[in-house]
Structure formats: C-alpha cells, structure tokens
C-alpha cells in the first residue's frame, strides 16, 4: 500500500550535513504524522541522513532505490 507524501524535496547533489538540515527544515514546516518524501544520493548521504532523522525522533517508513539514488519516506514525529 503506497503512502502518499504530503511534501517532497530533492536532495540530489547536496552534501552532508546540508542535506540533513534541509530535511529538518522541511519537516519543521509540516504537521506531526505527515509524510515527507526525500530524494537522496547513495553513499555518505544514505549512510548519514537516515540515522540523523532517527536521532531527531522521526520515522523512516519506506526506502526505495531509484536509479543511482534513493527515495525515503519520513513520517514526522
């Protein structure tokens, strides 16, 4: 069952920690329980951003490989 995101950001080409900061800012503008869609590069961003999102208390509910990168769905805490 596909969850429909409430908001979406494209972080391809963004370096750590700016990619995380942009994710955080996007989440701040949303309501609790809403879902953010994030497009992110493989490598360091995929190693660091999901962990930081968890540390902030949000939940990653879906991970999908799309081309060279990934799409994450994050439910705001």
């Amino acid at each position: 069952m596909e969850v429909k995101p409430d908001n979406s950001i494209d972080l391809h080409g963004e370096m750590c920690p700016i990619n995380f900061v942009k994710t955080k800012l996007a989440l701040e503008s949303m309501e609790s329980g809403q879902v953010l869609e994030v497009f992110i590069d493989d490598g360091d961003p995929m190693r660091n951003v999901p962990r930081s999102i968890k540390e902030e208390g949000h939940q990653i509910i879906d991970v999908k490989k799309i081309g060279e990168g990934y799409r994450l769905l994050i439910r705001k805490a």
Binding site: M46, R47, P50, R51, I60, D62, V63
Partner: peptide, 10 residues
C-alpha cells in the same frame, strides 16, 4: 527489510 542497515554498514 528496508536495507538501511546494509547501507549504514561500512
């Protein structure tokens, strides 16, 4: 089965 752990493991 989200695969994030395999991504995180260096």
């Amino acid at each position: 089965g989200c695969t994030l752990c395999a991504k995180a493991c260096q």
